[in-house]
Computed example of a mutant assay.
Amino acid sequence: MTGPVVVLVGPMGVGKSTVGELLAARLGTHYRDTDADIVAAEGRPIADIFVDDGEPRFRELEREAVRLAVAGHDGVLALGGGAVLDEATRDLLAGLPVVYLTMEVGEAIKRVGLNTARPLLAINPRQQWKQLMEARRHHYTDVARVVVATDDRTPEEVADAVLDALELKRPPGTDPRTPGKENLV
């Protein structure tokens, strides 16, 4: 096994899961999400892990979930928004086809809103999101092979941009580009 064919990173709400599932379908492979792995292993939502055990414990679980997924998955892999905070995780991602999906704060608030299931955005979501991005943006860009903007794009357009940016094959008969859109930011 050579590792994931695509690894998606970026902030919460950017569409990693939606785009990841589309990419997996288009590439004829499997999709895996490390947040879903954690929920399955723990038998409870991530918000409950944060409340009951704290963020440090969640980050330990996340580090292990990423390690297992990188070692055991050869399809499309989506990481939780904060996974790149861990140095060992960033080291694991070196050399992999990592795509950083971006969005601006206005788009983030439209997508995530006041969603209380996202524990890091429970109070003042706009300000919290900006602070999270200030702390994480450089990690996202450091691990990424390519950067793809998601603002004002459909998930299908984002998936096309990812395939184009990584020069991955798509099924015969699909349009190779979405006209009028930039593929990278």
Score class of each variant (00 low, 15 high):
158 V>S: 05
135 A>Q: 14
146 V>S: 09
143 V>Y: 02
49 I>E: 07
169 K>C: 08
162 V>D: 05
130 K>Q: 15
109 I>L: 15
91 D>V: 13
143 V>D: 02
126 R>E: 15
58 F>R: 04
163 L>I: 13
163 L>N: 01
92 L>R: 15
95 G>W: 09
91 D>E: 15
99 V>L: 09
44 R>K: 14
164 D>R: 11
77 L>Q: 01
74 D>M: 04
168 L>R: 00
124 N>Y: 10
82 G>H: 05
170 R>Q: 15
160 D>Y: 05
61 L>T: 01
141 T>M: 00
54 G>E: 05
90 R>L: 07
127 Q>D: 14
122 A>C: 03
39 V>K: 00
40 A>H: 09
61 L>I: 02
55 E>F: 06
114 L>W: 10
48 D>F: 03
78 A>N: 00
173 G>W: 09
87 E>F: 05
92 L>A: 09
156 E>H: 07
131 Q>H: 13
54 G>F: 07
105 V>I: 15
154 T>S: 15
83 A>S: 14
131 Q>I: 07
124 N>Q: 13
169 K>D: 14
169 K>T: 13
166 L>G: 09
103 M>Y: 02
155 P>Q: 09
163 L>T: 11
129 W>K: 08
106 G>D: 15
64 E>A: 14
69 A>N: 06
122 A>H: 11
146 V>A: 13
161 A>M: 03
54 G>Y: 04
94 A>S: 11
132 L>P: 01
139 H>T: 04
145 R>Q: 15
153 R>G: 04
100 Y>G: 03
141 T>G: 00
73 H>I: 06
172 P>F: 12
152 D>T: 07
148 V>K: 09
161 A>R: 04
131 Q>G: 14
88 A>Q: 14
41 A>N: 08
173 G>T: 08
98 V>P: 01
46 I>Q: 00
145 R>Y: 08
92 L>V: 02
145 R>L: 12
164 D>E: 11
124 N>M: 10
75 G>D: 07
96 L>D: 04
140 Y>E: 05
112 V>H: 00
67 R>D: 10
81 G>N: 07
82 G>V: 03
130 K>V: 15
72 G>S: 06
88 A>V: 11
75 G>Y: 03
65 A>G: 06
114 L>R: 14
144 A>E: 00
81 G>C: 03
148 V>M: 09
93 L>C: 00
46 I>P: 04
101 L>F: 07
115 N>F: 04
57 R>C: 10
111 R>M: 08
171 P>G: 13
96 L>I: 00
164 D>Y: 12
48 D>L: 11
79 L>C: 07
41 A>E: 12
97 P>Y: 01
62 E>D: 06
169 K>N: 11
106 G>F: 05
104 E>G: 15
81 G>K: 01
51 V>K: 11
76 V>D: 04
137 R>N: 12
119 P>E: 03
73 H>W: 10
44 R>I: 08
49 I>G: 05
136 R>C: 08
149 A>N: 13
147 V>C: 13
43 G>H: 07
96 L>P: 04
142 D>K: 13
45 P>L: 13
107 E>S: 15
101 L>K: 02
125 P>L: 08
48 D>I: 00
